[in-house]
Amino acid sequence: MKKRYFKYFFSILAILIAFIMVQKTGLSKLETSSKTLLMANWLNELKKDPFFSDLNENTIQNSTEQYSLTPTHTMLTIPVNIGYKAYLIITTDSSHQEQIVEYGIGNFLPYQKNIITNQEIRQLTPRSFYYLSPIENFWKFDLGKEIVYIEGSTGEWLPDLNEQNIRSIQSTFLTYQDHLTEAYDNKNLSFYPSSDLSWLTISLQNKGIFDLNQIQTLLKNNQKMMFIGNKYNKQVKFAYPIIGYHLWNQNQLYLAIYDDDLDLLRFISLEDLLKFGQIVAWTNR
């Protein structure tokens, strides 16, 4: 009888261990490697920006966590100070070199279920998550009688998306060898686009009105600026306030998009943004 008991005991124990391991596949600690050291060097470049100045090399090495968002995209998160984390979205090229698609810092990070505004949806397991670009990314929930789409970067409810007509774009990227030439951020340039919806009537040209140098000059002169675009095959029109920029390698401009509700600063390349809309100077009317 005892042998039979122990046989069943170890079988049950094995099943429990396997179940726990399955539950943890989405999150793991970053293993130390030469690639990790390159990443740490790149993150140290970010310390040229005061928002990232508290990044600690020991924390980078020991406390970076990685989440599998999709089969091709991974999210890395690094504690910066109390309540704040930095994040990177990375993918790999054909030679397995990691490419940085977007990055940022905030109190609430994108692509984490705790930003979903609907409490009931937040508790559910999504059917899938799609990361098509820093602009187009969403959870898909199957509620039985309906399919619900939730924005991955804001947690907001989306309309029923025509998935067959949505195509991923070839995103701009950085590598761990790139250098931050200049950084500028000013939270005083933030505002709520929802407080004045006149931007909804602006006809988008899908090309840049301002060039790289003009954008830098206007922001430094405290000119409020906004990015306005269409996404999901023009099913959704949206706007983000721009509060700064990072200039990489003297010629790659990443604009600082700020979400006041999430206290989240995201850096997205100007080139990627212009695939969806345009930059405008903004004065609340």
Rank of each mutant, 00 (worst) to 15 (best):
D185L: 12
L13W: 07
L13E: 04
F173G: 01
L273G: 00
G244A: 03
E45M: 08
Q23D: 09
D272K: 04
Y111V: 09
A18V: 14
L27S: 10
L219E: 00
P193A: 07
T175A: 04
L204Y: 04
Q223K: 13
W282S: 03
A183G: 07
M75I: 05
K24V: 11
F129C: 03
I257V: 13
Q119D: 14
L274R: 02
F238T: 08
S194V: 09
S171F: 05
K145I: 12
L27I: 14
D185Y: 09
L37K: 05
D211Q: 06
F52Q: 00
L161D: 00
S95Q: 14
L37V: 12
Y184R: 01
F173H: 10
G244T: 01
H73F: 11
G229N: 00
K140D: 09
V236H: 03
T36V: 10
L174G: 00
L204G: 02
D178N: 15
M39R: 13
K275C: 09
N56T: 05
I116K: 00
A183N: 00
L158E: 03
V280F: 12
V148N: 00
T59K: 04
F191T: 03
Y111L: 13
S171P: 05
N165E: 15
N58D: 09
L174R: 01
I147Y: 06
F52R: 01
Y111A: 10
I12G: 06
L16E: 03
L212F: 03
W42Y: 10
R122N: 06
A18P: 03
F19I: 15
K113I: 14
I105M: 07
F238S: 05
F6T: 07
K207E: 15
Y111H: 15
F6M: 11
S168D: 08
L132H: 06
I12C: 11
Q177T: 13
I78N: 02
E45C: 07
K187D: 10
T172L: 08
E102Y: 05
S63Q: 15
I202A: 05
F210M: 07
M226E: 11
I135C: 02
L88V: 07
P71C: 05
Q61D: 07
E156F: 11
G277A: 03
T74H: 07
G229I: 02
W139T: 02
L273M: 10
D49H: 00
L46K: 02
R4P: 04
W248N: 01
I116Q: 02
E65R: 06
Q252A: 14
I257D: 00
G155K: 00
S128P: 04
N230L: 14
E271T: 13
I60D: 02
K29A: 15
L76Q: 04
Y232G: 00
V22D: 05
G104S: 04
Y192H: 12
W157Q: 14
L218M: 13
K220S: 06
Q23T: 13
T172V: 07
M1H: 08
P110C: 08
Y192N: 14
T125H: 08
F129V: 06
F9A: 15
Y240G: 01
T74P: 02
F227W: 05
Q205K: 13
N81C: 07
F238G: 06
S33W: 04
Y131R: 01
N284M: 11
E151V: 01
Y87F: 15
T117V: 12
F51C: 08
N44R: 08
L76W: 05
T125G: 08
N233Q: 12
I209R: 08
S128W: 05
H73Q: 10
M225Y: 02
E57C: 06
K113T: 13
E271K: 11
M21Q: 08
